[in-house]
Amino acid sequence: MNDMRIMERKVDTKEVKIAAKDVQVYYGDNHAIKDVSVEIEDKTVTAFIGPSGCGKSTFLRCINRMNDTIDICRVTGDIMIDGEDIYNPKVDPVQLRAKVGMVFQKPNPFPKSIYDNVAYGPKIHGLAKNKADLDNIVENSLRRGAIWDEVKDRLHAPGTGLSGGQQQRLCIARAIATEPEVLLMDEPCSALDPIATAQVEELIDDLRKSYSVVIVTHSMQQAARVSQKTAFFHLGHLVEYGETTTIFTNPVDPRTESYITGRIG
C-alpha cells in the first residue's frame, strides 16, 4: 500500500519553483548557513527537518527575505523563484513577500477582528475592487483555511480571542488571502495540541494543490505525514535532500540516518 503511494507521488513531480544555489547566511560573525543548494518543486510540500539551531528556519526566512528585517544578517548566493533572482537589487522585498506568504511558529493574529485580519493583506495590496469583492476574498480564504464554519458567525470578534489552533488556521487564511505562490511555514504546529495539529496538517495537504509549500518542522512524523520532499539540515549544511520516503526509509548519509533514528539531535 505504502509503496503504491510512493509511485503515485513520483508521478506528481512538477517543475522547479524555488532554486537556491550556494546560499551562505551570516549573523554577524556567525556563519549560520553554509553552501546550501536546493531545488524546491511547485505544488509540492517540502519539509525541512534537523536539530535545533541547524539553520532550517534561517534558510526558510531567506526565501521571502524576512532576514532583511534583522540588521546583522547577511545573505550571499542566489535564490531564484520562477527563474528570477529575489536578491537582485531591483526586487522589492515588500512585493516579494506578498508573493511568498509566511506562517509563523507562534500564531500571531493582529489585535483586530477576524475579518480585518484576513482583509489586511488584500487591502494593502489593493486586491479587492469593492466591499463585496473583499467579503468574497475573506470568505474564500477562511474556507480554504478550514476555519470558515467556526468563525462565520463572529467575523467581527477579535482574532486574538480564538483558540491556539483556530488562531493558526486564521493566520494561514490570512497568508492565503494575498494569493501567494509559495507558502512558507515555520514550525506551524509546534504551539498546537494534537487535534489542532491534525487539522492544520490536513489543511497543508489540501494547500498543495495550489501552492508550493515549504514547512519547517521538528517532528519527523509530521514531515513524513505531510511532505513529499524532505531536506535534512545539520549544523548549517544541507545534508540530504530527496523524496520523503527515501529519506525516512533509506537515507544515504549516515548523519541523516542517525538523526532519524534518534541518535543525534
Binding site: 489585535p111 489586511y120 494593502i124
Partner: peptide, 27 residues
Amino acid sequence: VPQAMRDGSYGLGATKSETIRQVILPA
C-alpha cells in the same frame, strides 16, 4: 508590541509605515 506582530505584517508584504499605521499603533 511583540515582534511577532511586525513579522506577521511584513510576511504579508506590508511596508514599514503600513505595518506601523495598521498594526503597531492600534496595538
